[in-house]
Amino acid sequence: MTRHRRLTPFRIGGAVALAALLVAMTLSTRFVTPDELASIGPEKFDPAQTAEDLFAQANETIPDAATPLPELLTGLQKDVAKTADDLEASRPNDTTYLFPVRGTATVVATQDQAVEITVEGVPETTPLTFASGPATNGTVLRDAVGFKFGDASNQTTYQQVGDELKALVREQIDQGTGGKVAPGSKLAFTGIVSVTDTGMPQPAAKPVQIQPLTLEVAP
């Protein structure tokens, strides 16, 4: 014999409540398009825009923080760590210091990846160059303004920020120099000097390369 369940008032009330809940959930649910869903998700990391922001920050802060190159080299040839502490140098890792510098240079010779220069107050025993062309390094500028690996979405985008900064620096230098740097010309500069801390003073004969931020023809 088939046994039929009776719909008690309790069961009827429960079914009605469940139905009302489902209706309420449906009415309160907003269905979004894929585009709307993407717009409310985590913001996508944009290396190009990040580089633009860092570049603007660098142009605003580095000239004010820059030390005259002769003064910096005098300090480094006495005590690297103390000079870094006194000048509040950036330190992207345990052995590297980054120093903002400024000055006016006279071009001696040009190469594909370097511009040989002299700077008044720096002895000729210290070879000086600007990085140029492929040797221009946007990662130095990236690190100097405090952008860290954890600020990017991954290793690839972290490197892309440096690449984008390199392009921006090269464009700015071309604008400041008219795209031509000839021996004998004078250039006002700001930039970054990267120094490895070996625990010893930097020898006077050690070559110094400046990663330029700005280069402009000086009178």
Rank of each mutant, 00 (worst) to 15 (best):
R3C: 11
H4F: 15
R5A: 14
R5D: 14
R6K: 14
L7V: 04
T8F: 12
G13Y: 11
G14A: 15
V16E: 06
V16P: 07
L22F: 01
V23F: 04
T26H: 10
L27S: 14
L27C: 13
T29V: 14
R30H: 14
V32P: 08
V32K: 13
T33I: 00
D35W: 00
L37Q: 10
A38L: 06
A38P: 05
I40W: 11
P42I: 04
P42T: 06
A48D: 04
Q49A: 04
Q49I: 11
T50E: 07
T50S: 04
A51S: 09
E52C: 09
D53E: 13
F55R: 02
Q57W: 07
A58Q: 00
A58Y: 03
T61S: 13
T61P: 12
P63D: 08
D64N: 12
D64I: 11
A66I: 06
T67W: 12
T67I: 15
T67V: 15
T67Y: 10
P68A: 13
P68H: 10
L69E: 09
P70Q: 10
P70Y: 12
T74M: 02
A81G: 14
K82Y: 15
A84T: 08
A89E: 00
A89T: 03
A89Y: 00
S90K: 04
P92V: 02
N93H: 07
D94Q: 15
T95W: 09
T95M: 08
T96Y: 06
F99L: 05
P100L: 03
R102F: 07
T106A: 09
V107W: 01
V107N: 08
A109M: 06
E116S: 07
T118G: 04
T118I: 06
V119S: 12
P123F: 12
L128A: 07
G133M: 06
P134F: 11
P134R: 07
G138T: 05
L141P: 02
R142P: 09
R142V: 00
V145C: 01
F147G: 01
K148E: 12
F149I: 13
G150I: 05
D151I: 11
T156R: 06
T157Q: 15
V161P: 08
G162S: 15
G162N: 06
E164S: 02
L165Y: 00
L168I: 07
L168P: 02
L168V: 05
V169Q: 05
V169R: 01
R170N: 05
E171C: 12
E171A: 14
E171L: 11
Q175I: 13
K180P: 09
K180N: 14
V181A: 01
P183L: 03
P183F: 07
G184M: 12
S185C: 03
S185R: 02
F189G: 13
G191S: 01
I192T: 01
S194P: 04
V195Y: 03
G199F: 08
A205L: 07
L215E: 00
L215S: 00
E216H: 02
A218T: 12
P219L: 02
